[in-house]
Design a protein around this nucleic acid. Structure first.
Lengths: 150, 150
DNA sequence: TTAAGTGCAAATTATTTGCAGTAAG
DNA sequence: CTTACTGCAAATAATTTGCACTTAA
């Protein structure tokens, strides 16, 4: 089956995953359409956090035999971000990454493969941060650790 | 004149600025063409560091009465980065920013205006950083402080 | 003289949007 | 029913590229 092909995005669309996906949508008041439930199940169906691009999620959903258009994947990811279910992360310039973990945390960016993963936030210690200039406040502090293969 | 219009990108193309620009190119072994010297003078002609996008630099150079095509601005910025004269910074997703300060330092990103400025690095204190996973080494640590107007 | 640089215009890539059809509440 | 969602195809936006022309060395 597609299980082996799918190491990076494996949550099967089991009943449990679908149920979790629907619940996740419900917390944000989003309509549980077939497409959204499928995407949600892939994203958080196994309880793990996940980093995807529109394209990678599109491939995943197809691997699972669901018909969802690429435009809908884009629109859905945008809807999830607006609803606060996900966060958009900018590291690459050419494409957008989306993270199901909405807490402020550092990332590893693997420059060779263009992969984004979580960095252990316990191992990051920022003891002082520049003050926001007058009239501004800090919205977020993005920390990206760029990695190159040794 | 254009001086007032040009608060963000003011280095006049004085002899001194042009000379500095040429010297800068020379340090990287880049051919001092008319276009490159003009762009270099705008970028580092007054000794200040600068954050530009291809588009903003294109507008600046035109304000100074120089004929340089947008494609050449793109190609030149890429050449400057490859030569190590500048650094590319990814914060926006839609466009690339280029910084004449090649030292690792934090940035403020003004979300409303899409402006990038330096944050005082003395005020940033990172006392611990996640180790690079096996087989990888840290290429850089990018810190972007996103600001919203209060 | 000759390899590198420049400038168009066309191509590419990621993403968004208009609009007619479909489905959730 | 009625309003939001979906899907296609066309539109955008930033950037790159092919190729004939120019210029620095």
């Amino acid at each position: 089956m597609t299980k082996a092909m799918n190491a990076q995005m494996p949550p099967l669309q089991s009943d449990r995953a679908l149920k979790r996906g629907s619940a996740w949508l419900a917390t944000a008041g989003l309509r549980p359409t077939r497409q959204r439930v499928a995407l949600a199940a892939l994203l958080i169906g196994d309880g793990e956090h996940r980093h995807v691009t529109a394209e990678s999620l599109f491939v995943s959903v197809q691997d699972h035999g669901e018909r969802v258009s690429l435009a809908t994947v884009y629109n859905t990811l945008r809807a999830f971000c607006q609803a606060g279910l996900m966060h958009e992360i900018t590291v690459d310039g050419t494409k957008s990454y989306f993270d199901t973990n909405t807490h402020d945390h550092p990332h590893f960016f693997w420059e060779d493969s263009g992969t984004l993963t979580d960095a252990p936030s316990e191992e990051l210690e920022i003891t002082r941060i520049p003050n926001a200039p007058d009239g501004a406040e800090i919205a977020s502090v993005d920390v990206v650790i760029r990695l190159r293969r040794k």
